[in-house]
Design a protein around this nucleic acid. Sequence first.
RNA 1: GGGCGCGUAGCUCAGCGGUAGAGCGCUCGUUUCACAUGCGAGAGGUCGCUGGUUCAAACCCAGCCGCGCCCACCA
Length: 881
Amino acid sequence: MLEKTYKPAEVEARQYQRWEESGAFAAGRDGTGDPFTIVIPPPNVTGSLHMGHALNNTLQDILIRISRMRGRDALWQPGTDHAGIATQMVVERQLAEQGKSRGDLGRDAFVDRVWEWKAESGGTITGQLRRLGASCDWSRERFTMDDGLSAAVRKVFVDLYKQGLIYKDQRLVNWDPKLHTAISDLEVIPREVDGNLWHFRYPIEGALHRHIVVATTRPETMLGDTAVAVHPDDDRYRDLVGRHAILPLVGRRLRIVADDYADPEQGTGAVKITPAHDFNDFEVGRRHDLEMINIFDREARINENAPETYRGLDRFEARKRIVADLDAAGLLEKIDKHRHTVPFGERSDVTIEPWLTEQWYADAKTLAQPAIKAVEDGRTKFVPENWSKTYYQWMRNIEPWCISRQLWWGHRIPAWYGPDGHIFVELDEATAQAAADTHYGKPVELTRDPDVLDTWFSSALWPFSTLGWPEETSELKRYYPTDVLITGFDIIFFWVARMMMMGLHFMKEVPFHTVYMHALVRDEHGQKMSKSKGNIMDPLELIEEYGSDALRFTLTAMAAMGRDIKLSSSRVEGYRNFATKLWNAARFCEMNECQPDPSFDPSKVKSNLNRWIIGETTKAAAAVSDAIDAYKFDQAASAIYQFSWHNFCDWYLELVKPVLQSGEGADRDEARATAAWVMQQQLKLLHPIMPFLTEELWPQFSRPSNEPLITSAWPQLSNDLVDEAAAADLDWVIKTIAAIRGVRSEMNVPPGAKIAAILNGANAETKARYERHGEQLERLARLSGASFDQPVPPGSVQTIVDETTIVMPLADVIDIAQEKARLEREISKLAGEIGKFDKKLGNEAFTSKAPPEVVETQRERRADAIAAREKLEAALGRLSA
RNA sequence: GGGCGCGUAGCUCAGCGGUAGAGCGCUCGUUUCACAUGCGAGAGGUCGCUGGUUCAAACCCAGCCGCGCCCACCA
């Protein structure tokens, strides 16, 4: 006998272990079935499960589980990401607590230390995915820095280098002065801050007392100025173009150049140009061949290229000094308050500095072209579709991808330098050495590039590197391209776009046919959850309290397209109650000996009640299947919820009670078999969303096959069952339902009709049972306007209109209501037609140009429609009376 | 500046041309025998505003008002 309530904690671990040990998650189990593949967005190896993961992986698991049940060879490829900066920072923090830095350890020891940390905490996230119920094929788990994937990364780097698609370049990068590494544009967060706009006077060379006034938000960069730019059409400065200004405090001659970049509307119209410390100025510098003077070191302190007094000062310290010094020199014209955006590092949270360095770049522009085309051609589809716009916009304006990072944790760049700086890019040190020796004609000493690759470089290869590439494995052949990628839109640029580029370049095929972008789970303020903000909600706490199934169902029900999810625990509680409800339905079946009958044929049932619920089951199965196929997860959840609770529990089980409890032999047998069959079907339908509960209940309904639910067959119910149910004379079941649901508002059938109908439809014993509670029923009846003073004949409803009790056969009530509804629909349709005729006949072009007989036909048809409508309206009037 | 999206019940959100919906919360009643994590009955909405299209608009179109996100720029 089942307990009164479902206890998730007792069930989940046991069921998961059974699945995993039985090999149910393994792809290629029986060597048949079309492959269906999803690669997991690899979570940070040392991370832990947050709500975004919970949503993302629940949705993936639903697709994997339904595919598995449909007989597909489902592969959910799991794995984790080394997460360069993030992981390195964690370990550095740990070191800092011991008063050490990574420099103290040295590179090798530090990297060893990170591996230790990975070994220590690396199982956390995968353990948490298991708690969520994720049915990944764990036997194939990969890590972005394992041997195979590292080999893939090296090969991609070497190949792209040899194809000229990876190169070294000196240009401005976003430099993080705290982490001492370049970061990508995407890792820079612009933030509005209150600042000042300082106006400085730069003296004009050879013109005593004459100045040109420049405005800046960053006075300290003036030490690197090499020009002043004005707009070519700006009359105020026309005569100064070609002359020179003298840079105060430094004494450098600055060319005054004419450039469209200078906006006469902005500031003073004259702008100081610092090519080494501003992206726009860099471009101006290139156009005018200006000197680029780097005035910062890697910590953004003033370096030796500036006057001695400022050297070693922090940039903000330098700012104060420079403003003061210029003021003292009488060159500070004014200071305006100015609100502007300043770039901050996503992880370090310090101001990012544009800094001139040499870095490795990937030619994203070239790689993007096939990736754009693939989406244009529909070889990869975005769901919802409008994300393709975001994708296009970025891809069509893509910048070179800076792929080198000045970190220690990651894939070290496979480039070696000879004594004269010659570059050897090879798969490993030995081949590099050999190449170098050949190149120089003698043994030489090589230095390896100290940098590592951007984490997203290895992630970009994930869909094929995890399947064994560059080896030509059978997995690669079978499971690539994958079917669908499920991810949040926040990494569309970081990850999705780059997988498209790399997949197409190296595999010549898109990495996935569909990209489903789910909403972001945001915090209560609509803010993105992030570690740095400390606003992460813990899915594990919710699992602890309500069970994994309840959390999964909640996320599924809220996963409507194109809307952010704000999670509330009351919602999870509600779906926990749903789990209990289903549990109790199973318990009811158990108590009433509802077991599957191997010879049961849903198309052969006799009782109308049973035929009705079979029809409803069929509709629910279709609704769930269609919704999932369309990635409308919320609709799938709501379809099964509605069916299970309201159709099956509220109506079917209530109405079948009399039959089960005191019906005759054959009737009761059929009811039992039907109830068990419906349970069977709905457990299957619910399994992808609530795997634990359904598997736990399954044994009771698993006959005749007795196989576990996870690998059982997805319901494929014939539409004939719906038709069958609809075609039947649905007798009192449907009529009762109609009386309560649809007809009430029209015909004033009192709410108490449900009780009355049950009483009338029930046999003597049930009736007697209800009558034991006569007092309650009477009160209920009074409350709802029904009366039990006089017996109501079977098949009738009783209603009170204007204090007159009317007893009317239910069938009549239904017929009248249905007829009325039908007439109203007809009239509405005719009105539409008449309107169209009117429009056409009122169109002068039509009446004057169309052949007369055509116009006449239109008139006749209009007249017919009007006549028909009048007739129907009259009938409706009689009915209402 | 460019792009995307959202304003529907107290809260969180579905619906997106044909009689306004769900969950939670609220009110009243109810330990009845699967389930009080339940059951029954209710209250609560001019579907942001203004126009337009249509026989019919929460839904389509235009404009406006609020709100959010992404990208770019910012002397």
